[in-house]
């Protein structure tokens, strides 16, 4: 079975994003970019499935600008076998990404797509679900555990207040949550070897996908600063306020 893992190049999770002064977006030029952390988890899971003998090949795909090549290299250094770079604008919308991935599916015919549950830049949390919808496949979103057996994949999903197990027919789409695994480091020898692994470069339009945005950004602003509240004199007063004013206890 082949596994395809889409990976996104995003502003590194250590960087505090800065809203541009003109409100047109978040500053990304000259900012450190890295692989979306949830995508790292997805790559790790795919590589583990290959190491267990469940998967035969792991293909990583990134859709975006040329520099996404670095992200693909990192994924290959973690153990992915080869990469596909689909050139488009930076950070395309989930709908367009899902359509590109659907086209990749026709080309690659994988048994499983594993995606990160969301990208930490636009926080959409949609691509995996949308891809599954377009393909008519089952979706195991927010996965905390993945087991492949007997032509099905069993996914333990993180839901409000617990977990839910679902069983999906293969092929299927899985999206990785934080606790699925702890991704490995891309070691230096593996990074060096990854330079020799193949990357195929395509253009979104060659795949026949319309990348036109459906959402236009009107403005981006920093959230309002929290204001200091009141100091209370006693525990009794605090409890009274929490009960009757804030109504949280």
């Amino acid at each position: 079975m082949k596994i395809v893992v889409p990976v996104k190049r995003v502003v590194d999770y250590n960087i505090k994003p800065r809203v541009k002064a003109d409100g047109s977006g978040v500053e990304t030029t000259g900012v450190k970019m890295s692989m979306n952390p949830f995508d790292e988890i997805a790559v790790e899971e795919a590589v583990r499935l290959k190491e267990k003998g469940v998967a035969s090949e792991v293909v990583v795909v990134s859709i975006g600008v040329q520099q996404a090549q670095d992200t693909l290299r990192t994924a290959m250094a973690m153990g992915a076998d080869r990469a596909i770079l689909v050139l488009s604008e930076e950070s395309p919308e989930p709908l367009a990404v899902a359509k590109v991935l659907k086209a990749i599916n026709e080309k690659e015919q994988p048994g499983l797509f594993i995606l990160g549950k969301q990208a930490i830049d636009d926080d959409m949390n949609a691509t995996g679900q949308m891809l599954a919808g377009l393909l008519g496949w089952g979706q195991g979103t927010f996965a905390g555990k993945v087991e492949v057996a007997d032509g099905r994949v069993k996914v333990s999903r993180e839901i409000d207040g617990g977990t839910e197990d679902v069983s999906l027919a293969l092929p299927a789409v899985v999206t990785a949550d934080l606790r699925l695994n702890e991704p490995r480091y891309a070691s230096l020898p593996n990074i060096m070897k990854a330079r020799k692994k193949p990357t195929e470069t395509l253009k979104a339009e060659d795949l026949g996908v319309d990348m036109t945005r459906r959402l236009t950004v009107v403005s981006v602003a920093e959230p309002q600063q929290r204001q200091a509240g009141v100091k209370v004199g006693s525990v009794g007063e605090l409890v009274e306020k929490l009960r009757n004013e804030a109504k949280v206890i």
């Binding site: 702890e182 490995r184 480091y185 070691s187 230096l188 020898p189």
Partner: peptide
């Protein structure tokens, strides 16, 4: 030589240990 990665606080090799190169 590059540093080892994944050495834990107490100096042991952690689950993500990667030797330096």
């Amino acid at each position: 030589a590059t540093g080892d990665m994944g050495i834990t606080k107490d100096g042991a090799e952690g689950p993500n240990y990667q030797p330096g190169m």
